[in-house]
Amino acid sequence: MDLAANLRQIRAEIAAAAAKANRDSSGIRLVAVSKYKPLAAIEEAAASGQLIFGENYVQELTGKAAAVSVPVEWHFIGHLQSNKVRQIAGLVAMIHSVDRLSLAEEIDRQWGKSGGSCPILVQVNVSGEPTKSGATASEATALIREIAKLPNVSVRGLMTMPPFFDDPEGARPYFRELRELAAAIAGEAIPGVTMAELSMGMSGDFRVAIEEGATLVRIGSAIFGERR
């Protein structure tokens, strides 16, 4: 597994997808999804210029963050239990997966202890699949209005996980709907809320997601290989 070559390949594909959509690729950041991957793989990717790593589990993230020897910007991208927020407070640069007010309230409490604030994305279940986390598209605006009242939480955009399709084109309508929802929410001009970030697209469908406006793509297997 040549991580450096994989990263170069993905950066080139991000640039190509951005060019196809007439976008500046500097507005798209790559989140390397490192769940289940050893620290050595993270450090090897970092040596190849990768800066942002996304983790899905609190315990795994805190363990790696304590041991890593290179500067890493950590993003939390998995389902987050409120009772574990304390362990990542102040450590992660962004939480992509806020799907309920009670979780946002706990993030507000824990970040407030250090006098800081936490950039978050609201996870939206665009497809409405019952197995997926996330607020429904119709709930999202009301949820964001409530979160916006919390002083130590800063809403920066939306995240979604579309249903799985063999053909990445299948995911396009869900990415488009997220972008349109973000535009609608931005139009509400809720104080303190920006819709600058759209976290969408993974190894199989990030090119389509970029064409539909993704600013953060979460890529694991195309960098680190399939899980063994």
Partner: peptide, 20 residues
Amino acid sequence: VITGYAVLAGNGAIRTAAVE
């Protein structure tokens, strides 16, 4: 003109951004 900046905390937390 592009400036990248990073703020690194003592606990290892880091935030980065680039401005053009």
